[in-house]
Amino acid sequence: MTFLFYLFAALALLGGMGVVVCRNPVSAAFSMILSFLGLAALFIQLDAYLVGTLQILVYAGAIMVLFLFIIMLLDVQAEEKRRFPLATFAGAGAVVTAFVILVVLVLNRGGTAGKVLPALNPSAPGASDTHRIGELLFGTYWLPVQIVGVLLLAATVGVVVLSKKELK
């Protein structure tokens, strides 16, 4: 269990680094898929089966295919080398280091963060997570589901308008 956690966490983090480091956009996109697969494995380790599957289907499947499609459609070339941009790297390094230090400080503060993985109660009603999420989605959260539907419609219309040859 712990070994698998480290394996998939390393996969997610290395994939993420690949996105930042790779010059070629196609390699970056494939690193991103790798990172999402690792992340989905972590979700499944947290007993979030539906969400892990969605992560693979929607992110690694649909969204990254869209990215690759656009990268190849636009024929984006690898970024050309430039003179070492000291200001950019120093600024970005400072911001990121500050963020990591902040995260470590917050995690070291104690509280509930050191909790070990609690065991699930197998005899709880509706033990399948898909079942429970479906009930919540179409029960308690029916209005947000409708609103998200409208959002998707608006996004579709927006994309069609943006893709027209001439904007009027």
């Binding site: 269990m1 712990t2 956690f5 966490a9 997610a12 983090l13 993420g16 680094m17 996105v19 930042v20 990172s35 992340l39 972590l42 947290l46 970005a92 390094g93 911001v95 990121v96 963020f99 990591v100 995260v103 470590v104 995690l107 509930t112 963060a113 050191g114 909790k115 070990v116 993985l117």
Partner: peptide, 19 residues
Amino acid sequence: LTLNHFLLVSGLLFAIGLA
């Protein structure tokens, strides 16, 4: 495994994205 493990991975991944 503790909550900290997952939160740290999440924080590092966020930092990588930010970078």
